[in-house]
């Protein structure tokens, strides 16, 4: 087992604001790691530091066997980066964009690489179309194709599937898994729980701190969260009532059902005791990743947010 990324103590401030605070990341080669966390938690900043677009304030280690951040230029060359916002040229055609990328990376056979990429994307017929006219899903496929054109060893994807339809998302993930099978290491930020579950590992970042890591099962287990589900007519309406009771850390509607969670099993069971009656049926369930993340956010929230 080799680590594609092995970085310690990564930090970045903008002025006095700490966007990323002392993060350590170890990512195995050929693995897909999901990078999760609410907006503004520092995902984009972390990815940018890893690919040399931002200079870290602190942090050192190895990326692709190269010294980080000293050899940032060399790391950059073997890394593919797909930005959060579409950042190819909207006023150039699909083909012109790919040709530009191929030439900038000095690929040996520019036209062949472009043709193959177009073929694989199924965009050969639309090669003369302006990139700006593509739909969100196609833009995302084009951006991914451009990011992997130079055969990088490390692929950094920043919310690649935001605003993309389910079918395109599924195709996208199939492609990512295909690339990982070929040995590419992937770090992908996302807000979708189903996508998090498709990753080999997840890393959860909040307010610049890395607060959970591991496989989805590990993260759920380590949260030591206990969740009960109530079913029955209008069970979801109990959320407000139950949330106020001691021992209930979280009560959230889940469709027509209700999920009630807490880390103290005894207190939680006491809290729901009086609701264990008709017409409600209670069962203990495995907490979802979403339950865990929402709870993590609550636990790690700064004091003033908790008080509010």
């Amino acid at each position: 087992m080799t680590l594609a990324i092995d970085v310690e103590g990564l930090s970045k401030s903008f002025g006095t604001f700490k966007a990323v605070d002392n993060i350590s990341l170890q990512i195995e080669q050929g693995h897909i790691t999901g990078f999760l966390g609410p907006n503004g938690s520092g995902k984009t900043t972390s990815l940018r530091m890893l690919c040399g677009l931002l200079t870290p304030d602190t942090g050192h280690g190895q990326v692709l066997g190269l010294e980080f951040p000293r050899e940032a230029e060399a790391i950059k060359r073997q890394t593919g980066y797909m930005t959060q916002r579409f950042s190819l040229y909207e006023d150039l055609t699909i083909e012109e964009n790919l040709t530009f990328i191929a030439r900038v990376y000095r690929l040996a056979h520019v036209q062949d690489s472009v043709d193959q990429t177009l073929e694989r994307l199924g965009l050969t017929k639309r090669r003369k179309q302006l990139a700006g006219q593509l739909s969100g899903g196609w833009k995302q496929r084009l951006a991914l194709a451009a990011a992997v054109m130079h055969d990088p060893k490390l692929l950094l994807l920043d919310e690649p599937t935001a605003g993309v339809d389910p079918q395109a998302r599924r195709d996208f993930w199939d492609r990512i898994h295909g690339l990982a099978d070929e040995g590419m290491t992937v770090l992908v930020s996302t807000h979708y729980m189903d996508e998090a579950e498709r990753c080999h590992e997840i890393a959860y970042i909040f307010n610049g701190h890395l607060i959970a890591r591991g496989t989805a099962d590990q993260v759920i287990a380590e949260s030591r969260l206990v969740t009960f589900e109530a079913e029955g007519p209008r069970a979801d309406r109990l959320a407000r009532e139950l949330a106020a009771r001691p021992g209930v850390e979280m009560a959230a509607p889940f469709g027509e059902a209700l999920h009630v969670s807490g880390t103290d099993r005894a207190a939680l069971e006491a809290a729901i005791q009086s609701y264990r009656r008709e017409p409600y049926r209670w069962t203990e369930v495995q907490p979802t990743l979403e339950d865990v993340f929402i709870n993590l956010m609550r636990v790690h929230a700064p004091a003033e947010v908790k008080a509010a």
């Binding site: 690919c51 677009l53 950059k76 930005t83 900038v104 990376y105 000095r106």
Partner: peptide, 13 residues
């Protein structure tokens, strides 16, 4: 402004 600078900078240019 259009964000394409990020692409330019992430290449070996």
């Amino acid at each position: 402004e259009r964000g394409t600078m990020e692409t330019l900078l992430s290449t070996p240019l």
